[in-house]
């Protein structure tokens, strides 16, 4: 074993914290854990000590956690309180731009497309066809069927179409049925969104007022 120690033990009020390195091999950790326990046999006997194990960024399966537990269990007085990893760090780029799926073709009657993220459809949605998306839906064509945007409850999702003549639109859990609730099919591109819990339709050019972040970079 080299000089570098992969396990740091800290004492806190409640007991002991084992900080496990998250870059090295898992086997190395187990070896060192064994070694540490053997070395400090005296310290680890006596009254019950609560152990908190911190894995850092390392994510472990239940069976690997069990291997750690079984090593520590050799010392009768060590009581494992928790084995924790840091919450997985969210990739910041993902947050800004959820995946945009691009699809070409016509969604015909009886066909259903489901996507996680936004969808850009180059084609039409015919009556009887359905799109379900967790994000926005942009239809570069005629929207004559049904679209459900923000299926997982995203009330900020929008549905945009070159020709807006849907049979039904849904955003999050709001269902809207044109033309009873609104009429449209103007010659310009439109989008549907939720305004205070009800479906509304507006020209595409109004979108940047609603979503300022979309148009941050306008060149020089």
């Amino acid at each position: 074993m080299t000089g570098k120690s992969y396990i740091t033990i800290k004492g806190i009020k409640e007991g002991l914290v084992f900080l496990l390195d998250d870059q090295c091999e898992f086997v190395t950790l187990l070896d060192e854990l064994n070694a540490k326990l053997d070395k400090h046999v005296q310290q680890f006997t006596g009254p019950i000590v609560h152990i908190f194990i911190k894995l850092g960024a390392r994510q472990l399966e239940e069976e690997d956690k069990e291997r750690i537990r079984s090593i520590l269990r050799r010392q009768g007085n060590l009581l494992i309180q928790s084995i924790e990893s840091d919450p997985p760090t969210v990739d910041p780029t993902l947050k800004i731009a959820p995946t945009l799926h691009t699809m070409t073709g016509i969604i015909r009657s009886g066909q259903t497309m489901e996507f996680d993220g936004h969808l850009l459809l180059l084609g039409d949605v015919n009556p009887g066809g359905t799109i379900k998306c967790s994000g926005d839906v942009y239809v570069l064509g005629a929207l004559r069927g049904s679209v459900h945007a923000g299926v997982e409850g995203d009330v900020n999702a929008i549905i945009a179409a070159s020709l807006m003549k849907p049979t039904q639109l849904r955003i999050a859990d709001i269902i809207s049925r044109p033309p009873d609730e609104w009429t449209s099919a103007e010659p310009w591109m439109e989008y549907a969104f939720l305004r205070e819990g009800t479906m509304a339709i507006d020209k595409m050019t109004s979108l940047n007022r609603q979503r300022k972040e979309v148009m941050q970079f306008k060149g020089v």
């Binding site: 015909r108 009886g110 015919n126 009556p127």
Partner: peptide, 12 residues
Amino acid sequence: VRDADRVIGLLE
């Protein structure tokens, strides 16, 4: 027309 659309989808 609706049924034709369905059938075209199945044919494709």
